[in-house]
Amino acid sequence: MLNIIWVIMIFTGIASGLLMGRTKEVSDAFLESCVNAVELSITMLGAMCLWSGMMKVAQKAGLVDGLAKLLRGVFKFLFPGIPKGHAANGAIAMSISADLMGLGNAATPLGIIAMKELSKINGNSPTASNAMVMFAVVNAACIQLIPATVLIIRQQAGSASPTSIIPTVWIASLASLISGIAAAKLLEKRYRDPAYGLKRTASIW
């Protein structure tokens, strides 16, 4: 998937940079981007260690299974095929909880942990399983109870009631979540697991 997207992004970027006479800006941005990437990674390195460590402790304490039991009904529908008591259950539950609470710094590491656990169930295959795609889609819908960053910016921009957008954010997130789940469920038959054949259609993405 990323192979083709990367080529398209770089090609359209450089081509329109030439057209618009912005080659210097493009060149500067390209060279600076790696500094930003390293800064982001270093920030994430600490958070990754912290949350991976906490997750390991929670798992050994049996808390992860407890959390997974609570959410069993939803998980059976969204992520079928996760064995009972597998660490993936708890990792997904923790990651979605972090999303809900708007804990950006914790949500990404927890999401990565969940994705790696799902990958283990999938035999660390280079092809994503249905459950892995569904997990990515649920993340894309960005369900948040309190969109903290947006509220702060609204307040700074002089809003009379920064929180007035919370209901619309909830409705929009829900619309996004429902459409995403439906799309993933419908598309998973078209882009089948290679185990079922049809490797070529899937490899485009």
């Binding site: 990565i112 990958s119 660390n124 994503a128 795609v133 990515a136 996004s176 995403g180 789940i181 993405w205």
Partner: peptide, 29 residues
């Protein structure tokens, strides 16, 4: 998100992940 999550799990073929995620994103927006 897709690049980081699937990159960490060493997944090369993400199947319908991008299509479904973009549908989710644009439906919400």
């Amino acid at each position: 998100t897709l690049a980081v999550y699937f990159g960490a799990a060493d997944v090369k073929n993400t199947r319908h992940a991008l299509a479904a995620s973009l549908i989710a994103s644009y439906a919400g927006m």
